[in-house]
Design a protein around this nucleic acid. Sequence first.
DNA 1: ACAAAAGTGTTTACAATACACCCATGT
DNA 2: ACATGGGTGTATTGTAAACACTTTTGT
Lengths: 234, 234
Amino acid sequence: MTEDPPVQHMVLAVSTVIFSLRPHPDTGELTLWLPLVRRIREPFKNRWALPGGPLQDSQDLGEAARTAMRRTTGLQPRHLEQLYAFGDVDRSPDAPERVVSIVYWALVRQDEDAHAVDAENVAWHPVDEVPGPLAFDHDLIVRYAVDRLRAKVTYSPIAHAFLPAEFALAELRRVYEAVLNRALDPSNFRRQILSQGTVEDTGRRMTGTAHRPPRLYRSAPQSSRYSLTIEESP
Amino acid sequence: MTEDPPVQHMVLAVSTVIFSLRPHPDTGELTLWLPLVRRIREPFKNRWALPGGPLQDSQDLGEAARTAMRRTTGLQPRHLEQLYAFGDVDRSPDAPERVVSIVYWALVRQDEDAHAVDAENVAWHPVDEVPGPLAFDHDLIVRYAVDRLRAKVTYSPIAHAFLPAEFALAELRRVYEAVLNRALDPSNFRRQILSQGTVEDTGRRMTGTAHRPPRLYRSAPQSSRYSLTIEESP
DNA sequence: ACAAAAGTGTTTACAATACACCCATGT
DNA sequence: ACATGGGTGTATTGTAAACACTTTTGT
């Protein structure tokens, strides 16, 4: 910011990795899915790509991510967070112009997922079975986003963002198991979550369950997450 | 990336928060410093700002951060990492054009810091005493970068980036103490670092010390930090 | 010899895991 | 009544902090 800005020949785009939890078609196990958009023009015509688009002059970055999510899935994100900015000169060799992409990731609430309406050329895939190679460097981005989600779930209460306002601890556990892709001990999980203070008992219980009705919890007001976070919520 | 890119009226800039460790002028305690550049034109004329500038068409993002560091301090970064992209529409209200900034942070090796040559209008400040308010939203960015550095130092061996190739454990401890701003128990610190396996004994010892000569260590080859990291090294 | 920092050992407290066992509900 | 997931208790192990103590150098 010291010299005169020269004219730049590049496009600034925003893309979003949208995560949702759905049963795997083969095993029935809950797993991570994400929607991809089939490109209908060059470059990378017919390849799958992350939802996104060029940043409009009047749009904030997170706003652009939200718009892309809305456009492809019809959903509003419950948790939206910036992932990384990808901007190497050679990352879009066949594109007419250099593209710098600021990538966000979003989590879909399980109860809302049912209302998702996929736009034209949009299809969801289990994260471990994306139909690669994807357009641009989106394979790399997807892997990075999954890693980041797995890491973050272990030290932050973001898993709640997958669940409705009230939920049983077993549901929360199943979210963790789906994201981390391994089984967790129910009793120890219970203790850990309760000791963190990230959930509070509603006093009520779930009804219509096959067995003993579990207590319902809600996520506790984020008691000033001490490290300043730059995250977005609608 | 689904529609035709409209013409964008914005500038993409790269800024860098450059951290170095120097004694505090009053207390003599080792603390974090960073260089700021005094702006010589509008907007925010005469305010202090982070080193940076508009991204050139042929520059990778990290390259731009490195260039800014070189230009202001004459140094090559030992550790360079992307921090965050700041792009709200209203973050530069007085600027002629919307500015989207991709911000990096860098760590200066203590032995190289001595060779730093500050360019015109560049001055270093302890991070807790920056002459605010800074230009743009740079106050926020600095706070965020400091928080991130403090957090990361606790779960990653980046502190080594402040030190020369070979160092005593007490030196490494002093780096941690300066970054975290609290004293650490020498014996427990030693055990923790050694058990992590992030350093290895060179077999040699430091000479010319006032007291018992400490062993010299070097940072161990990063045995495949399991989570894929997108970091940069020269 | 002594001061000061390097380095070792030990005790204690607390957190994470494994797992046995009791509870409450629909069928 | 019984199968099943909800929920509690407890023994064990591992890690982190506190701190007493020994070692090795320069002065």
